[in-house]
Design a protein around this nucleic acid. Structure first.
Lengths: 152, 152
DNA sequence: GCCAGATATATCGTATTACGATGTAATTCA
DNA sequence: TGAATTACATCGTAATACGATATATCTGGC
């Protein structure tokens, strides 16, 4: 019921530039993600498969990773992670090995092929991030410089 | 056929820290996108619907946006954009108005309800970005500081 | 003024994938 | 030892992006 110039709290109205900044940020993210998706598909992987082997390589490159830890890192439900691992295994990118100490656990490790493909993808991604980072950083700083919305 | 210490080109081997940085970046992105998804669903929108109205608000808040421009901005195929707009219209978030000058075109504008929901979402997102930006910027700089992969 | 081609939007069938609900095997501990 | 817990797996369903294709409108050359 309060009149429009102010929201319920005392924060100032959002201005056009706030929406422009948020929209630019999302556009930049979509652009990066589209690049990444295309790069993954170009080597025969789905985007999720690429993210999956990167998560394993980045977090547990040698000792192997349980499905639960993998699900948590990927922000997926446990059974969604199981299905993703099924597809990774079928694609020859990941191996399941039962943990000898606790045979409920499946430890995930990358195949050599996954390592090679991931290395090429990672080089391409680092190069792309080198190109995109300045703009992303600029937008992030523009949005977070002030903790309220836009001023002057 | 070249031995492993160097790839085909002369760039140095990727190291653990390169994979850790890339994996951390993707994890931070997933974290932000999960927040955004949850925020959108909390007000009864799908994540794509939220991104859609943000794109319209950020790019053509008053004059309206054609479906083709919308598809391009969202990095979607034209007919996928049509379907998304169908759902937005059914949800009462977007209106189609035939362009009087070129009646092939549908100009998309936001409803008042979309404007109100987007404002609340945008405040929440700016706050979240205020929290996440430092880490994101740090990782981006770490990855792009050098144009090759990690060095000491 | 007419029509071939171009442009803008729309429709239909399909495939992928994430999820809720649920099941099974292994482990823990009172 | 057996009830509860933990870890992984299976099945059916829903959402959505896409390729292929259709329809309506506009444009330029004649």
């Amino acid at each position: 019921m309060t009149d429009r110039p102010h929201a319920a709290d005392d924060s100032p109205e959002l201005e056009d530039r706030d929406y422009v900044a948020l929209a630019s940020f999302r556009h930049a993210l979509r652009h990066f993600l589209a690049f990444s998706e295309e790069a993954a598909r170009a080597v025969g992987m789905t985007p999720q498969q690429h993210q999956a082997i990167l998560a394993i390589r980045g977090l547990s490159p040698r000792e192997g990773m349980t499905i639960n830890d993998f699900a948590e890192r990927m922000l997926l439900k446990q059974h969604t992670a199981v299905e993703l691992v099924d597809r990774l295994e079928a694609a020859g990118l990941v191996r399941r090995a039962r943990d000898a100490g606790d045979r409920r656990r499946a430890l995930l490790t990358l195949t050599d092929r996954a390592g090679e493909l991931l290395e090429a993808l990672s080089r391409a991604h680092l190069a792309q991030i080198g190109r995109d980072a300045p703009q992303l950083i600029e937008i992030l700083q523009r949005m977070s410089r002030k903790d309220g919305p836009a001023r002057s």
